[in-house]
Design a protein around this nucleic acid. Structure first.
Lengths: 198, 198
DNA sequence: TCATTGACATACGGCGCGTATGTGTGATGT
DNA sequence: ACATCACACATACGCGCCGTATGTCAATGA
């Protein structure tokens, strides 16, 4: 028990703080979350927080990076399972919409993240979600499936569309029906990118 | 000077407070803006603010409603000037992207608004921007130009795409070039809605 | 074994929000 | 015209929260 090295201990406290922060931020929002409560829930004090993350924003940044990484990995996994590259792109977009329904993702990454950390593309994590979409798009453009538009621009618009759709679905009364409409509209819109409209 | 009725006076203080709030919120962000400074700049105190708007969020709501209304009016004016309905839709979208480059719009309506007031479609102002796009889309669907998708879903995705494009442009080093790419990508994406791809 | 580093806790100061209370001016009735 | 009321706004107060400065104790290394 006491046989742990200092580095391991520190990594553990970081993990505990991030875990508590994910809970607190997603339930109360970043602004309303109290550092005292948050750290107490992790069995620590604010001292540990300022030592490890600098300030409250630093903790938010760490949380956002973690969730963003998880989202990117999940989307990529879903996209890789598709039969064609194009279906993969669509699947990734739909996956983003569905993931954005989770309170953690919505509240922390989509709402508080941009508001308190600024534009996602400026984040240290480099916005993994965007990178995944970007790569898929570049591949599709190279193989001629997608028209030769600016890949980054298209990726941003697609992600933005998916994100906004998710906010809509989440605020809706009948999430299931609205989700179906959102996914359908997403497919139609994305179809605009195709070189040979189907 | 003293010949004003009470209602007129109250309307004037509301106007002054909202004006100061637009400045403060857009420059410092909602969270960092101090009510004391804000009201002092308007020649008043926090008392006036709590009396007229209930709390800090109430003031943000009022500011957001005002800006949203202005945006919707501007977009509608731009869209109405186009030769065809379809061109009008595209023009509105481009107008949103360009408007979102203004710090007031970006910071207050696009970042702090959703974070502190929740989903835009739930706002009392009913999100005028969305309504404008929605009407245009419904017209286009009725006349057969646009495929029969769910109009609200499509409107949301379009607006979301435009919004995200704007964030990208604003954070960029060469806004002019990036804006051109964003607009081009927007046109391509929107083309997916067309019944007869061109 | 002892000095030192560093991870974390404790203590302190200040600011900002929300509310409770005070105040003066315009509205109202006779 | 005068007294009274109502109300828009100012003033006063308390609480919570963040950031920093300081303290403490265990782990490290010679």
């Amino acid at each position: 028990m006491a046989g742990k090295r200092r580095a391991e201990m520190m990594e553990e406290t970081r993990t505990k703080l991030i875990r508590s922060a994910r809970r607190a931020f997603s339930e109360k929002g970043y602004a309303a979350a109290s550092m005292d409560e948050l750290t107490a829930e992790a069995g620590l004090t604010r001292g540990a927080l300022y030592h490890n993350f600098g300030d409250k924003r630093g903790l938010l940044q760490a949380v956002v990076d973690q969730i963003d990484g998880e989202m990117a990995a999940r989307a990529q996994a879903v996209g890789a399972r598709a039969e064609t590259e194009w279906d993969g792109l669509l699947a990734e977009g739909v996956a983003y919409i569905e993931m954005a329904l989770e309170p953690e993702v919505q509240r922390i990454v989509l709402l508080d993240g941009p508001a308190f950390l600024g534009d996602p593309s400026q984040w240290p994590s480099q916005n993994g979600c965007l990178q995944v979409t970007l790569q898929k798009l570049e591949g599709l453009i190279a193989q001629g499936t997608v028209r030769p538009v600016d890949a980054e621009a298209a990726a941003r618009l697609l992600n933005g569309a998916a994100l906004n759709a998710a906010l809509w679905v989440a605020a809706s009364d009948q999430p299931q029906e609205v989700l179906a409409k959102a996914v359908e509209a997403f497919r139609v819109l994305a179809g605009g990118l195709l070189a040979a409209p189907g």
